[in-house]
């Protein structure tokens, strides 16, 4: 059992932070690595890239958006409650070296994953420009932490409620024109990572993206998370989760991410009905 020591609702009913006791993982984890969480005996194994780790307190931090039944169950857990299973650290750590000017692009909950990478890049002596994107102001998470570790930060939002109105690629285009990066790291929704990679490809700027495909074991045993990179089939769990954005078959990746969409929607509806019925029952009892 893995105890949750702190929870935070970063975006009401949507984006949650959990800090969880896992001393072995906290001691060993490096930026870019992920873990697998399971909340109940009957639950799914959900891979999440770590947003932070603290070897002193023996805790790891993950951030997730409620997108289906499993994440809905996660979001209902309170501090002091437990996950039945936590496996990690998994995947290869990010290659962090001093290359010069690094542009870190984060979208949605990907900003949380970007956080330790950007921090590592800064620590290694790079100049870090950060570009963050979100639907609207309240979805722009981790802004203060990212401001603190970046040399410059540009915020973008779809509706203009924070920063500038527009996409992260609009900002990236300008940065490329005025202050060409040596490396771009992009973490966020697949369409965002794809757009960033397409933008940097003609400029020949090395671009890393962090993938979050469907997984089971996370140790290379099942091949569920396979993705085409260049001419090769790679397993994101052991060969990734980070890959060269210019080599990824984003189309295939998107299709495989939708493998269980119908089943998930069905499970989510059933779960919601059950929760509402339960809430009603509790109300009546009260």
């Amino acid at each position: 059992m893995f105890k949750i020591v702190r929870t935070e609702e970063l975006v009401p009913t949507s984006v949650f932070l959990h800090e969880i006791e896992a001393p072995r993982v906290a001691r060993k984890a490096q930026p870019g690595q992920f873990l697998i969480l399971k909340a109940t005996e009957t639950g799914e194994r959900i891979p999440l890239t770590m947003a932070d780790t603290n070897p002193e307190t023996g805790t790891v931090t993950v951030i997730f958006m409620v997108v289906g039944k499993s994440t809905a169950i996660f979001s209902a857990l309170k501090a002091g409650e437990t996950y039945t299973d936590l496996i990690g650290p998994l995947g290869r750590p990010t290659d962090i070296e001093k290359v010069g000017h690094v542009v870190c692009v984060g979208g949605g909950t990907g900003i949380a994953v970007l956080h330790p990478l950007a921090r590592g890049m800064k620590k290694a002596g790079n100049r870090v420009t950060t570009i963050l994107g979100a639907r609207s102001e309240n979805f722009l998470i981790f802004r203060e932490q990212m401001v603190a570790l970046s040399d410059a930060l540009i915020a973008m939002s779809d509706d203009g409620s924070t920063g500038r109105k527009g996409f992260v690629t609009d900002a990236l285009k300008e940065v490329i024109a005025t202050d060409k990066p040596d490396l771009v790291v992009a973490v966020g929704p697949v369409p965002m990572m794809r757009a960033v990679s397409e933008l940097t490809r003609p400029e020949k700027i090395h671009t890393l993206v962090s993938l979050n495909p469907v997984m089971v074991d996370g140790t290379g045993m099942c091949g569920c998370c396979r993705v085409t990179v260049g001419d090769e089939i790679k397993f994101a769990c052991v060969d990734g989760p980070e890959f060269d954005g210019h080599k990824i078959d984003f189309h295939g990746l998107t299709q495989r991410l939708n493998a269980y969409k119908a089943a998930e929607a069905e499970a989510m509806t059933a779960h919601r009905c059950r929760m509402e019925a339960q809430a009603k029952q509790l109300e009546q009892q009260a």
Binding site: M221, G223, Q255
Partner: peptide, 26 residues
């Protein structure tokens, strides 16, 4: 890489360890 193509490891792990045949499991 099409959806519906599994390694036996994945198919059996989902069915056995993760009990996909039992409606109580997710």
């Amino acid at each position: 890489n099409l959806i519906g193509v599994y390694s036996a490891n994945e198919y059996l792990t989902r069915a056995n360890l993760m009990k996909a045949y039992d409606p109580l499991y997710d």
